[in-house]
Design a protein around this nucleic acid. Structure first.
Length: 269
DNA sequence: GGTTCGTGTAAGGGTACTAT
DNA sequence: ATAGTACCCTTACACGAACC
């Protein structure tokens, strides 16, 4: 399931399950549909849609097949490549900051043609040979930057994350199932600084707060939005249903399904 | 489909220490 | 004082199996 053998460019029938984006990447949806959630916004992608996933950001993907088909093209822009690229082409960042993890890009004839030109290069494993790949990646970057000069601010910012507002960040990203260490890094802190700041703001340890927050959201979704427990636990960052159910009962005194059962049983007061 | 329980293990809290 | 590191011990969690 997990695409660990990540090649820098591939065409594949499954979206990456990874929630943390370690390097900038270009994604083009060939067929099927995809829901992308970045902590505050949800993007609906249809075939022919594309965009940039940003380095050091969090995003979740839900794949939907259409007539049994799902295919996306994924092209990685790792730091080393971007540094070399900008040594040659010198696009200047203008220092504009944004927080979004996903940058949807507007339709562009050149990108459409680029994708068509890419197709013959994929081998039977859906991967492109490295020599061709670097030329094609360079071509794509030039097309994207000419059409969207603001991308330079994102792509050529090579630093580590800066120290940012912890409270805002956590309230936005608590649904992502990533380690405390990663949360610390993304907020521009060492692990110990993160724990200290966290305690000051939330009066709780990170893991306790995270579980509580997710369970409260689960309670709300099941009770008020009439969602099924099995539909929400993954979205909220739990990895398996049994633990979700156990933790839910521990906090609220009853298992998640009891909320819906109680409703069905008797009419509301 | 949902719940509970047992188990091995990785994550994280606590703390003491060092560096600035 | 403030920030980072290292260590150890506890616990939270993933996972599987059995059961409702």
């Amino acid at each position: 399931m997990k695409e660990t053998a990540i090649s820098a460019c591939y065409i594949s029938p499954s979206p990456s399950t990874e929630q943390f984006i370690p390097d900038h990447c270009f994604m083009y949806l060939v067929s099927g549909a995809m829901l992308v959630y970045d902590g505050s916004k949800e993007y609906k992608l249809a075939p022919g849609h594309y965009g940039i996933g940003r380095r050091n950001h969090l995003a979740k993907y839900t794949k939907q097949t259409i007539n049994g088909a799902f295919k996306k093209i994924y092209i990685l822009f790792e730091q080393e490549f971007l540094v070399a690229f900008n040594d040659s082409y010198r696009f200047l960042p203008r220092g504009k900051k944004t927080v979004d993890a996903i940058m949807p890009l507007k339709k562009n004839e050149l990108v459409e043609n680029f994708v068509r030109s890419l197709m013959p290069y994929f081998n039977e494993k859906g991967v492109i040979e490295k020599d061709f790949l670097n030329i094609k990646r360079t071509e794509l970057l030039l097309i994207l930057l000419k059409a969207n000069p603001e991308l330079a601010d994102i792509l050529f910012d090579f630093g580590d994350p800066e120290k940012i507002d912890l409270e805002k960040f956590m309230n936005r990203n608590y649904k992502f199932n990533v380690s405390i260490e990663r949360f610390a890094y993304l907020t521009g802190r060492s692990l110990s600084a993160f724990k200290r700041d966290f305690e000051k703001i939330f009066k709780a340890t990170p893991s306790h707060w995270l579980v509580q927050k997710r369970l409260e959201e689960a309670h709300y979704l099941i009770d008020k939005k009439h969602k099924r427990p099995s539909d929400v636990y993954l979205d909220l960052g739990f990895e398996n249903f049994s633990h979700f159910s156990f933790a839910f009962k521990k906090l609220f005194g009853h298992p998640p399904t009891q909320l819906n059962k109680a409703k069905k049983g008797r009419s509301p007061k």
